[in-house]
Write a protein that binds this DNA or RNA. Structure first.
Lengths: 165, 165
DNA sequence: GATGGAAAGAAGATGTGTCAACCAGTTCTG
DNA sequence: CAGAACTGGTTGACACATCTTCTTTCCATC
């Protein structure tokens, strides 16, 4: 009747289950991170990225590119984290406009605890439940969908800029 | 070297791909919904739920249960949507504490457009990319993970209330 | 029918994300 | 070298989610 005709019912099951799983997973990981290390997922993303960067520091713009965040979001987030002593901002010698973001002592401490706990939680909640075949299938499938999404996204961006020009 | 040892590298690929896919999917659907119907995913969730309810109306508490939202979030969201003319709040005759939330004309209009577009987008971006076997495997796998998450979540809640008591 | 506790919901405070305007350095061009 | 155009980054206003109270109503019991 009034339900949507283009997608079979069985497919909707998968859709809803998948979305619910992801939502719950995010929520649970966030909760654990907050409880055990006192940081949010956003904080964690920044810290990990800095940690993996050469010399443990990064320009805010690059940080934004890597995390796919708006630059204003990076700026706000970093400001808050600096206030809490997790990172430090240093002026960039070579380019007077730029700033380096680096790990502060407290940030390093929080990160090291968080990394292990986070990985453990992901293993327990997600990977332990899957067998090898399922993992392979899911990797193949999600990779394909992701590739398509990225293509669509780029096409759109190209379109937008063409329209604007 | 300093990467996490508990999860094999191949598994991390799956993890990151899956998360990226879901993020992108959310973003893209949200964007389309916003552009074509002028509403957010949150708005859409409320509208669909109301639409599927008997008599097209629902108590805020039930709405929260179905969407797994906190009641305060429901309250704020509904207040905003009411201000925009998407829904209406009506006092409940049978229980003086309660309120019914119903679809307003503008909400119905927005919803009808959105439903079809949203389903089409999901099909195009997601289902068209998957074969039957993959879908079945993913449904089985995600269902299991979700069940475990829910179990973990309940155990935790029980724990918390036990601790509080 | 008064009283105390539980439930439904609203409202305020706070932290975070987004968007647009903005500022200061930088680079390009005449 | 002056000024235009650009770029990296910040700021402020606003939308939203979450947490914590507050208000009203309901219901059980005395």
């Amino acid at each position: 009747m009034s339900t949507v005709s283009e997608v079979p019912n069985a497919d909707w099951d998968l859709w809803h289950t998948m979305r619910a799983m992801n939502e719950q997973l995010s929520r649970e990981l966030d909760r654990q991170l907050q409880r055990d290390a006192g940081i949010s997922q956003a904080d964690y993303g920044i810290l990990v990225t800095l940690f993996e960067a050469p010399e443990r520091r990064m320009r805010t713009g690059e940080l934004g590119d890597l995390l796919a965040w708006e630059k204003s979001r990076v700026s706000h987030q970093v400001a808050r984290m600096e206030a809490r002593g997790l990172v430090k901002r240093v002026v960039c010698e070579s380019d007077g406009r730029g700033t380096w973001v680096t790990l502060a002592a407290e940030g390093k401490r929080a990160l090291l605890g968080a990394m292990r706990e986070n990985a453990t939680a992901i293993r327990d909640l997600f990977f332990d439940e899957l067998d090898e075949g399922e993992k392979q299938t899911m990797l193949r499938a999600t990779s394909r969908v992701l590739a398509k999404l990225n293509a669509a996204c780029e096409a759109e961006a190209a379109n937008a800029s063409a329209g604007a020009a």
